[in-house]
Design a protein around this nucleic acid. Structure first.
Lengths: 251, 251
DNA sequence: AGATTCTAATAACCTATGTTATAAAACCTT
DNA sequence: AAGGTTTTATAACATAGGTTATTAGAATCT
């Protein structure tokens, strides 16, 4: 497997430059990539948790089913994201994960994370940062669910996804594919799908954005960011503050 | 500083037994304990983030202020908890932290965490587990905010705190002090304080619990757990799955 | 191409929760 | 003990968002 094919190496490079030996270590621990189709299940609530995944192509989401038949979407995962990190010390999955589109994932056994801890401080720091960043995204979602109305919530979720996509593809324009049904928006935002529909209509009438099937077109980026109460800080991904000198042997 | 005085050593022991050398390493990196009074600020949104804290006595909470004047409470911290872990790789604080009661905290510089990564795999795993467990608590809160009504939300929050307190003090009875105003409940649950008041009245009328000032008395533990949709799994704190053999030199 | 299923838009109606106001306790300060 | 502040309870009223139903357009299947 070449470095280009390794999901995890590419993702870790966002955080800090890696030496050749670190790249090799990561690649040696990762299992080969697996293709999955839309709607395929990575795992379900209650399954034994023994590995995490990196998603190198396609989208996925995690969710919890509620007793009353509803569900809460917890994360939306984009290419490059790490899935299942929070279950590292847990015996069983507490949320299910399903593909939103066709895609490719690599599985990475929990035991191998401990090998990383033993062999590379830099990689350990990166794992730790990713976990912290995921916490930050969850707290931002908490604010979104707790203290914003449907209009602001929806604007915020679209804008967050827009920002995250732009980090993956800096050439991304104001119009892009977003393969999330209104039901997924509803389950992520704690709303009904009917009200999500109303809200997208309202966002269009306000000339903020158009959602047509799975395509989003942002009409007024600045104003959208502002009504969403969005500030990008929580998406930061760098280790400069912690590992200032990049003492790299082989780049 | 003796082992008994170290906040962090005591907390880490919940996760895995520690060898004498590991305890010593932790203690050497931690700064001395500091006493704080109720309402004192540990830090505010926007402050530079250079250390985390362990809270060895007293309660605290973290929050984000929203532009419209409201705020979202993100965590409630109890004795033994680690505060500020998610900001490890961030330059600045994205949430403020304030004491709810008088208490004692120990500060622990971020740089020292990297020393831990270099010197103890077991301690690294524990840090990682704590971060994962905090993520789990945040996802549970997400479900609470997104998919439960005020009655269930409030029941859930009380029950979670009850469970966490019981882990600290197994002798805790069904009646205990809970130094959270209804405004704090409101800001944590995404409700208005008026509705929190109504909800506690309703919980009393349903014979589930009584809240009198800062004292909670649980009247029907089983039914409270059930209406809250509570399941304790997300509070798990053990490393058995990851570090099975406790190969301890000096216990 | 026709049948079927999924997804979305919109309307009519309902309810949980927000808002504002008031007053009583509890608590804090002097 | 008096006076101020914070916390809580409750009522009256307003509204954001939920629920159910209907219809239509896309997407998928045969």
């Amino acid at each position: 497997m070449s470095e280009k094919d390794s999901c995890i190496v590419r993702h870790f490079c966002h955080y800090s430059q890696l030496g050749a030996d670190e790249k090799e270590l990561l690649m040696s621990l990762e299992k080969g990539p697996v293709s999955l189709s839309a709607h395929e299940v990575l795992w379900e609530e209650g399954d034994l948790a023994g590995e995490l995944c990196t998603i190198s192509a396609g989208w996925a989401y995690s969710y919890r089913n509620i007793d009353d038949g509803s569900r809460q979407v917890l994360d939306v995962f984009l290419p490059g994201d790490v899935i299942g990190l929070r279950e590292f010390a847990f015996t069983r999955r507490l949320s299910g994960v399903v593909m939103l589109t066709d895609g490719v994932v690599c599985r990475f056994p929990h035991r191998n994370i401990v090998d990383i801890f033993e062999r590379s401080t830099r990689l350990t720091s990166i794992f730790f940062s990713i976990s912290g960043r995921q916490q930050m995204m969850l707290t931002e979602r908490l604010v979104n669910l707790g203290r914003r109305n449907a209009f602001e919530k929806t604007a915020h979720m679209v804008f967050e996804l827009y920002c995250r996509l732009k980090r993956i593809d800096p050439d991304l324009g104001l119009s892009f594919e977003l393969p999330l049904s209104q039901q997924i928006f509803a389950d992520a935002l704690g709303l009904s799908s009917v009200h999500v529909s109303r809200t997208f209509t309202e966002l269009r009438e306000e000339n903020l954005l158009i959602r047509d099937r799975n395509r989003i077109t942002i009409l007024d980026e600045k104003r959208l960011e502002s009504v969403a109460g969005f500030s990008e800080g929580y998406l930061e991904e760098s280790l400069q503050s912690v590992l200032p000198e990049a003492d790299l042997p082989g780049a």
